[in-house]
Write a protein that binds this DNA or RNA. Structure first.
Lengths: 240, 240
DNA sequence: CGAGGGTTTGAAGTGCATCAAATAGTGTGG
DNA sequence: CCACACTATTTGATGCACTTCAAACCCTCG
């Protein structure tokens, strides 16, 4: 039990807008939350479902998506450790604006949305932190829009890889694709076939080596040159 | 003077998150703000400029954009009456995350960002309203992402027209394009030439008539059928 | 009236999607 | 440990949508 509390506190410390949450606030929170494991394929909620909880990702990957009337799916985001999702349900009509599905076995902390709105209302400092978080999230999404309209398929993949590279490392990096290539493809707004071919074009242009789900990057700068000229955030473009 | 105050108060009443602002808050505000006219072409600020003010649009149109290293421009949004912009500068690094340029002569109210952060910190109810606003803004941008990846050019234009139709009206609507076709094109992530041709395809498919900047829509439902099947927000999809 | 930007049209090229099929990879039960 | 089923990924062929470049047209405004 105590171990679980410790885990939750550690996890929250890494997550905006909770990273410097005071002991008092944590005290209120710990009674309310649970940390659980979820299997791949599990659907947490769907778009327009009434919303009660939002989630903090401790580990694993979660796909956020929307579905059109004719059945196609658009991937809004794929989130992981240190991200939160579902917080949109605290506002608007208390409905989720996207669906959420586990794509790699994940541990999640579920927190009542009521806790979030109460905290915002009662604690001005926390409200600022929350707004700060929302603003950065928004600028992240704005960049997605830009990326879709200004970068071609190989460039978008390069951009995606750059975000996986530990910051500071510029040579001989090995990164691991965090989830299916098919999902990466739809995350980047392209078809799986296009992804496969674009990946080859990227490799030809930057000298990276692809072996299954492993990518060996000899020179990070080559990817920067290849991808970032068509993007308005210079490198490093990690989402603030 | 008094007339100006009246105008500002009326304008703010139509704008989230200020629509039901109390008299006290307005009292603090009125000393700080000004309402001015700006000519077409005027650049208010650029991406990464240090931010002091955010703006409320009383009338006119303002383009929000980002520029890449190779000089291309991505239009993030084009806002008008009832919208605010630049509020992102209150958070993050106190920098604007996009540039702003007047595209149709506009009247704007400039409000110090410090007023915004103080109000959020001091007034819990207002903080909630602000977050509500940010959440709806975000879901709007998420829809843009979706729209870019799931709808083709003529469908995106149809979607754009639907947002110009007064709600409820379903037959014999005449709408007026609010700004240059070239700008609409880049707002929708396409080239002017593509816009021109796609507009014709839309007209062929839905029976609308284009005369210069005027669009005559005999049957709104035809546009809905044409555009909305590839979108996850049903009609009406006005941005909440 | 003439200059300049906005808009349309034409022709040609590119990139991505689609359909179809082969191949690799993964987990299953025998 | 192998055979099988099933999924993920790659490859090929083809078509369409959008872009690009070039030029004409239109409209407005000095």
């Amino acid at each position: 039990m105590d171990r679980n509390k410790q885990k939750i506190q550690n996890a929250l410390r890494k997550v905006r807008p909770f990273h410097d949450m005071g002991g008092g606030m944590f005290g209120q929170l710990e009674a309310l939350v649970s940390c659980r494991e979820y299997e791949k394929g599990r659907v947490l909620f769907l778009q327009d479902d009434p919303a009660d909880y939002f989630y903090v990702v401790v580990c694993g990957w979660v796909k956020l998506f929307r579905e059109t009337m004719d059945g196609t799916q658009a991937v809004v985001d794929v989130v992981s450790e240190g991200d939160i999702f579902g917080e949109c349900g605290a506002f608007l009509d208390k409905k989720y604006t996207y669906g959420a599905e586990i794509v790699e076995r994940a541990e999640l902390i579920a927190i009542p949305l009521s806790f979030l709105s109460k905290s915002v209302e009662a604690d001005g400092k926390f409200a600022i932190k929350m707004l700060d978080f929302m603003a950065s999230r928004q600028s992240k999404v704005a960049r997605e829009v830009e990326s879709l309209s200004l970068q071609n398929a190989p460039q978008r993949i390069g951009c995606f890889f750059l975000k996986l590279v530990p910051s500071g490392q510029m040579t001989d990096v090995v990164v691991h694709l965090p989830y299916d290539k098919t999902l990466i493809a739809s995350r980047l707004g392209m078809q799986p076939e296009t992804f496969s071919r674009a990946l080859r074009r990227l490799a030809d242009g930057t000298g990276i080596k692809i072996r299954g789900a492993t990518v060996e990057i000899a020179d990070v700068q080559k990817i920067v040159n290849f991808s970032c000229s068509a993007c308005s955030s210079g490198f490093p473009c990690k989402n603030i």
